[in-house]
Simulated scan of single mutants.
Amino acid sequence: MSDTRPEALNSTFSNDPPNLEPDSEDDDHAPEVGRDSNEGFLDNVPDDTTELDLIHERITTLEGLGLERLHQLQRLSLRQNLITKITDLNHLTQLEELDVYDNRITKVEGLDQLTALTSLDLSFNKIRHIENLDTLLNVTDLYFVANKISRITNLGHLVNLRNLELGANRIRTIENLDSLVNLEQLWLGKNKIVKLQGLDNLKNLKILSIQSNRITKLEGLSNLHNLEELYISHNGIEKIENLEMNTKLRVLDVGANRITDLEGVHHLDALEELWANDNNLSSFEQIETVLSDKQHLTTVYFERNPLEKEAKATYRLKIKTILPRVLQIDASMVRAA
């Protein structure tokens, strides 16, 4: 079984907090050639179409596509094209999902009339500022992954947001999220965040991913009583602490930090998965003391800790013996559910 944690497949950092430098301005590969013309491109698309996928079609501009006649369109995907500017969409007043993932957009604009939108994906573009979302009050899912954003701004009015993804940007501070009280998922991995803060009002948050940042202390989570999944691997954390109020945690990923013991998870009775690989854990006895009473624990990761390196061939047998309910040790199943 492979490592399927959020962002885990892309993580290549050591136990040191990652030093993520901004992408260079000329980081593109050889430029892809765009379409010569949009004329007639959508002639075969019926006027009453509700879903349209225009993926990897070398589209450089939305002008001339003829989208204005598709008044019933509810979902539009423009993934993996060469679009530099959002235009000619304001007539799509029934549109609920817009996906412009992996283009060359530099500015959020041209969305004012799309008030029915519930999902907007602007990931993998060249956007520097979150802006011009004032009328999109129905958005529940918002994606800005892998842009050039340095600050969290202009989201306060989006009170219906359930899922916000800002991973792989240049953000240093968690801020301006106080009014997003309905948020359930917040993804901030691969930024430059140094402190857990600004989360107190997010009392409905269930998933927090903040992998591959520069955090050295677990803190600022005491108001998140409904938190179920915490992904904070590849940081500089030395101690599991301050999780006393997070008793609903089912998944805790503290892999690739500098942790020497597991004392801070003693009270997490709902725990199902514990990822603590690539740390400084050395005691099988402590694993037994802290985790043997966890009735729901099915998955543990302890590989590349001193306890694995020292035990070598007997490592998995020891874990299996002291945690007999566990179904998976590291990437391998030990028994069927």
Rank of each mutant, 00 (worst) to 15 (best):
L202A: 04
L249T: 02
Q295V: 13
I232L: 08
V290L: 03
N191H: 07
S282W: 05
L199Y: 04
T289V: 10
N182V: 00
L196T: 02
I210G: 04
E263W: 06
L180E: 00
I215D: 05
D253I: 04
Q185Y: 03
L252W: 06
K192Q: 15
N246S: 08
V181Y: 00
S179C: 03
N223S: 15
T299Y: 01
N280H: 15
L227I: 14
S212Y: 04
A270V: 00
N305L: 07
L177T: 02
I232H: 02
L199F: 09
E238K: 10
N235V: 11
L221T: 07
S292A: 15
Q211I: 14
E263D: 15
V194Q: 13
G255Y: 00
E219G: 10
G255Q: 02
N223G: 05
E285R: 10
T289K: 13
L291W: 11
K312W: 00
R304P: 01
N201H: 13
L202F: 07
I193K: 09
S233Y: 08
N277E: 12
L188I: 14
G189R: 05
K190M: 05
S233V: 00
H266V: 15
N191P: 04
F302A: 09
N242M: 06
T216E: 15
T216W: 02
K248F: 07
N191G: 05
D278T: 12
E288I: 09
S282D: 13
V265K: 01
H266A: 15
Q185M: 13
K190N: 13
I215V: 12
S292W: 04
L196C: 03
R250F: 00
Y301T: 13
Q197R: 04
M245L: 08
I237A: 08
N182G: 03
L307F: 00
N242H: 14
W187G: 04
E310S: 13
K206T: 07
E285M: 10
E228S: 11
G220S: 07
V300I: 12
L297V: 11
Y301H: 14
L249V: 07
G236F: 12
S282I: 10
S282V: 11
V181A: 10
I215Q: 02
S283L: 06
T299V: 15
S233R: 08
K312R: 15
S233M: 09
G189H: 06
I287S: 03
W187S: 07
L297S: 09
S212A: 14
I210P: 02
T247K: 13
L281V: 13
S233N: 12
K294M: 06
L186K: 01
N226D: 11
L186P: 05
D293W: 06
K192F: 00
D269E: 10
M245V: 04
L291K: 11
Y231F: 13
N235C: 06
E288A: 14
L243N: 06
K192P: 00
L202Q: 04
L281G: 07
I232D: 01
V194E: 15
G236Q: 11
K248V: 07
